[in-house]
Design a protein around this nucleic acid. Structure first.
Lengths: 150, 150
DNA sequence: GGAATCCCGAGTGATCCGCTGGGAATTCGT
DNA sequence: ACGAATTCCCAGCGGATCACTCGGGATTCC
């Protein structure tokens, strides 16, 4: 049970953008280099993030990506949903109605998955990229060796 | 991001066994029938659960499976780990040391995954099959139409 | 015009999932 | 002793998804 690495890379990229928020568009090449991810692969993820309205893109020379809103209003959950689909440990507890299981009303096992989903959403939706930025800067200031995200 | 249906079926099967705890071995066929799962497929899952020490098996006629311990001492987390491996949203936050990422100490994104893992474990490890049994019986008593698990 | 970008779709090898099949070993009832 | 009921084990398999790569088109700045 893992999120795919799309999500891992996507969150890293978004954090990178958050750390450069307000400085104009950041080209993919720069992000890919800092995060050691294939530029071409990252491109696909950014496409999804753009369609989800989380990043804005500028084409042409001096173009690139930037956050579509301020870091404090974008959560990790937003990114996960954009890249991975609805957050749900099993199909039968996805939020959109499609049941996929006709025993929903009286399925006892399902109560566990519902609680699990809530608890996952609580963590993911309560963490914004502003929070992560702050943590990153803190880490940089306490002279903690070297900062990964420049 | 879903658990595989191994887990879904496995939890249902374990709950079935829990509801028949103390009545001697339950044959696979009975479980498979009640839970509408392929008997042969369920067999594989039970193999994993047996190796994890969660169920005991009796071969031959009148054989079958039963919980290896009392329902109150087996959690949903136990079953998930037996069928799905360590609970971790990303490989880099698996409990056994294997890092897979050399930036662990200063990777800010990782803190989110760690918190997520904890929160998932908290839910899964705090739910025992005795709890689920109780919920199932409650539901049966409140005349809630019909009980799925007989 | 030319370089730097984003944009898009197609292809690919590996891996896993969900399931099926066949058959051996074990145990119980008669 | 026999046969039915069961667990056990291994092997295969079609489809899906993942993590990429490749190639090329469109756009924008200098």
């Amino acid at each position: 049970m893992h999120f795919s690495s799309r999500t891992e890379y996507g969150v890293k990229a978004m954090l990178d953008l958050a750390l450069h928020y307000g400085e104009g568009p950041v080209p993919l090449r720069a992000i890919a280099g800092r995060q050691s991810v294939s530029e071409h692969y990252l491109e696909q993820l950014m496409g999804a993030l753009r369609k989800a309205g989380l990043v804005a893109s500028a084409r042409g020379a001096q173009g690139g990506y930037e956050l579509a809103r301020e870091p404090g209003s974008i959560t990790v959950g937003d990114v996960v949903r954009a890249l991975e689909g609805p957050i749900a440990p099993l199909p039968c507890v996805e939020e959109d109605g499609r049941a996929h299981c006709d025993e929903i009303a009286r399925c006892v096992a399902r109560t566990v998955w519902v609680r699990l989903r809530s608890s996952m959403e609580e963590v993911l939706d309560s963490t914004t990229f502003a929070d992560l930025c702050q943590k990153a800067l803190q880490q940089r200031n306490t002279g903690d060796s070297f900062m990964y995200y420049i």
